[in-house]
């Protein structure tokens, strides 16, 4: 059976970009899925479950990235995480 892989393009919409708090919220949400989660920006491909890795993207508002999930719950993972990015991280507050 081929691997269950799903992908969608997401755009960072919160004015502060993917700073540490949103990066943490994303990694925390990603960790709930057993699928491998990756974010791809230009030639950078990073582990979406690692706060540090997400921060290396330096993703400002308007940045487009591919969100990829590979594994048994890939469909749900892409849906939930894409919604989180699109929501602008309402829990981000300052920081």
């Amino acid at each position: 059976m081929s691997e269950n892989k799903h992908s969608v393009t997401v755009t960072v919409c919160n004015p502060q970009g993917l700073h540490m708090r949103p990066a943490y919220l994303f990694a925390e949400a990603a960790a709930k899925f057993s699928s491998q989660i990756e974010l791809v920006k230009d030639d950078l491909r990073i582990d979406g479950k690692s706060v540090l890795s997400i921060l290396t993207l330096g993703a400002t508002q308007g940045t487009q990235m591919a969100l990829e999930a590979t594994g048994p719950d890939a469909v749900d993972a892409v849906k939930v995480l894409a919604e989180l990015v699109a929501s602008g991280f309402p829990r981000e507050s300052d920081g």
């Binding site: 970009g17 890795s53 993703a59």
Partner: peptide
Amino acid sequence: RPGDHLRALENISKQLQ
């Protein structure tokens, strides 16, 4: 200057890896 903040964090996180 949220962009500058992100670029500083980006550098720190890259090196810390």
